[in-house]
Design a protein around this nucleic acid. Structure first.
Lengths: 131, 131
DNA sequence: GACAAAGTGGAGTGAATTAGTCCAATATAA
DNA sequence: TTATATTGGACTAATTCACTCCACTTTGTC
């Protein structure tokens, strides 16, 4: 029922990138020091952000990471799902899950409402408004 | 980011008890068969509901389980926290956690809002309205 | 009073997830 | 060419999840 520490690392990373959003890349080393994230673990985390098209990386000397889009166009829910996959308060709300109960199960119905309420907040939250 | 299967078992159990709420106890065997829950695992689950004062058990022959209160006075969030403990979308929102960051951290702030939105739905949902 | 039915309590287990760590390989700016 | 970065993959300890097994206690009924 919690986001993982890795997801929090991802959010912190995106915030760090948004803060220094001058078009230049920042090294993972710098981010790991600023945000106190184990460097090797941070690299893995950034890879997930790359796959979600949230950041762009540049290899080699003077390489690093930068936002793939302006912070005004990135929502919190995108960052979370980049690490955790689709959000589902219960197995039965995960995409592709076939409920063996009747389709209008009262449990999934209320959990879906709770999930929607939460997602609405996360979808409306822009990265730029968190700096 | 999901409730556990045990929590869903607990909700199903409470629904089963609410359905047959005539003041008589129901055996865990019966509940496990109706809701397809492994019997021994269900017993553990019911013990957690007992500790949360949501159900009352009766030992011995003809014993079983019944609601501790009318279904109109039981909310979904009580059932969930009985199994999972206090709900916290992130470690930093768990009771008693001291945030090493500045206290008005933007991450905890927005996660708290998302959590509140979710909790509001779960707190307003009565067991009696789910049957 | 014996017996069977029912909850209680505790130990153990296999699989999955979490949160890393280590290291070799590759790319690239200077 | 070399120092500096990211990439990718293997490995691991600790924890959680979802049970399972079983001995024990309680209690209604015959």
């Amino acid at each position: 029922m919690q986001i993982t520490r890795q997801t929090e690392y991802a959010i912190k990373t995106m915030l760090e990138l948004a803060k220094n959003a001058n078009g230049n890349v920042i090294s993972t080393r710098f981010i790991s020091e600023q945000q106190e994230i184990p460097e090797d673990f941070l690299k893995k985390t950034i890879k997930l952000l790359v796959l979600a098209d949230l950041v762009i990386t540049q290899r080699g000397a003077q390489g690093g990471v930068k936002l793939a889009r302006p912070a005004e166009e990135i929502t919190l829910v995108e960052i979370i799902t980049a690490i955790e996959g689709p959000i589902a308060l219960n197995v039965c709300l995960a995409p592709g899950y076939k409920c063996p109960n009747q389709p209008n199960c009262s449990i999934s119905k209320v959990l879906r409402r709770a999930q929607t309420a939460m997602l609405t907040v996360l979808e409306d939250q822009l990265l730029s408004d968190m700096i």
